[in-house]
Design a protein around this nucleic acid. Structure first.
Length: 276
DNA sequence: CAGGTCTCCTGCTAGC
DNA sequence: TGCTAGCAGGAGACCT
């Protein structure tokens, strides 16, 4: 499933393959993907537009066209595929048509979303971007910032790190990896973390994401984004594993905030006393 | 405001 | 072999 590193990879690939010519036509096969505009409005406003740039914030793709901004979230299984001659299948929902070919938004579970804004609108003050917190590698990310966020939160650190309004970009798999590297139990109340542990979280969040971005960029086929296979899955230490790579204890899978959560009960102690 | 639960959706799998 | 119930999960809605 696409998380920040995958979205960043998609951003780079889309930048390289989307034609810099006017969109000739748009076909909406599944209207529910569109969040804040009608299908008619979406087609009218984007037809004739030319892509200028693509940005990313957290897991959102931000496509800047001449007069419009398309904000796309891939959720679980969303992906884009560009082909010269594309015959839509049952999971293709939105088609962007150029002289040079067709870009299809493909999403088996239809969880993905698209928002459309005008360039003059301040998208950072509107949903869904307005509530996003800083990314782990942003300058304003600091121990004092997170400490303040964690202060009144008694909920599990795992759930807290998945909250995109506090820190954006982390998904289920990466949070497990970060907490394992930081040796923090996923059920620890966020408010119980000390400065040293928060420092560890920031540093591992940043390094896990950057390693994953570096891996994601290596195995892309530039002609079809639907077939990205990142290398980072081979670097996972805890998520989906059976045995702890450090102490060889059997890894526990529990449910935290409704999310499958892997941790080593030996290396990631529930109380603060060091277990190594 | 914090936080828990439900919802969306469909492919996959465990169990019969 | 074939069927079905249940599960997975990001983020927003809704309730306490």
């Amino acid at each position: 499933m696409p998380e920040l590193p995958e979205v960043e990879t998609v951003r780079r690939v889309l930048l390289s393959i989307i034609p810099r010519s006017p969109i000739l036509d748009i076909r909406i096969l599944t209207p529910k993907i569109l969040q804040n505009v009608t299908p008619d409005e979406f087609c009218t406003r984007l037809t004739g537009e030319v892509l200028e740039d693509i940005q990313r914030r957290g897991k959102y793709l931000i496509l800047l066209y001449t007069h419009e901004v398309l904000v796309s979230h891939l959720r679980m299984e969303g992906r884009y595929q560009f082909e010269e001659n594309l015959e839509p299948t049952k999971h293709d929902h939105i088609l962007f048509v150029w002289q040079e070919g067709i870009l299809a938004y493909h999403d088996t579970r239809k969880f993905g979303t698209m928002h459309l804004f005008r360039r003059e609108e301040d998208i950072w003050k509107m949903n869904p971007l307005q509530k996003l917190g800083p990314e782990p590698m942003d300058e304003i990310m600091s121990v004092s910032y997170l400490k303040k966020c964690f202060q009144k939160r008694k909920r599990a650190i795992k759930s807290t790190l998945l909250d995109q309004t506090i820190m954006s970009g982390l998904g289920n798999i990466y949070v497990d990896e970060i907490l394992f590297r930081a040796r923090i139990h996923p059920l620890r109340p966020a408010s119980s973390l000390n400065d040293e542990e928060i420092t560890q979280i920031i540093s591992h969040s940043s390094s896990v994401l950057q390693e994953a971005i570096a891996c994601g960029g290596t195995t892309i086929r530039t002609f079809a984004i639907g077939t990205i296979h990142g290398r980072f899955q081979h670097e996972l230490q805890i998520h989906g594993k059976n045995e702890c790579p450090i102490c060889h204890t059997t890894i526990k899978k529990i449910v935290v905030g409704g999310r499958g959560t892997y941790h080593c009960k030996n290396c990631q102690c529930i109380d603060k006393s060091p277990s190594l």
